[in-house]
Design a protein around this nucleic acid. Sequence first.
DNA 1: GATTTGATTGTCT
DNA 2: GACAATCAAATCC
Length: 210
Amino acid sequence: MDYSTYFTNYSTEEISADLLGRPLTYNDGKRTLGGYIVEAEAYLGKKDRAAHSYGGHRSPANEGLYGRGGTIYIYAQRQYFFFDVATQAKDEPQGVLIRAIEPAWGVEQMISNRSGKNGILLTNGPAKMMQAFGIHDKNWDLHFLSDSPFAIDLNDQHQKRPQEIAKSARIGVNQSELEWANKPLRFFVAGNPYVSRMKKNDYRANNGWQ
DNA sequence: GATTTGATTGTCT
DNA sequence: GACAATCAAATCC
């Protein structure tokens, strides 16, 4: 399936859950870095109080959300960057935030990009993942996935399969609007140590993969 | 292990 | 000038 079909023909919640276990890679010009997606959050556009596009808000900074499904939306907050992929048709500003991956390719380079931090600290958070890739700008914002060094492998033969997909409220969203803050729009691989805020007691054998 | 706090910058008003 | 889809170090059990 091509990116455009995958990120347009399914609901944003379905896409967020289905991405778990699929490889996300970034080519830094010399080598391929990346791993398996273990955590993703859905942001449901104009009606979603926690989304940057709530109420139809639109600016140069969040234009990526308004792109067609498969468009990259890179957002800056403080000194950190996040990696999102727009979902749904052009001008329907929904998207998926990739929050964490289980490192698999170019691990040594990613550790180096993270100043030597390794283990789960390498990629168990959205800004940590971007640091591991060595990204410190919005250069690839607004580009389509296939026209960028990023790749999400949609071949079912290449993905890991979660034992269980767990859901929870999204992390870090404004708690003043509880109806949206509490919606279970965060999807993660149950028991995978690279999921942000995963407790040791909840770790599962084989990192939660089948 | 859980909770708190300071760092620090793009973006919008 | 205020705030934010965070992180890491410090502190307190």
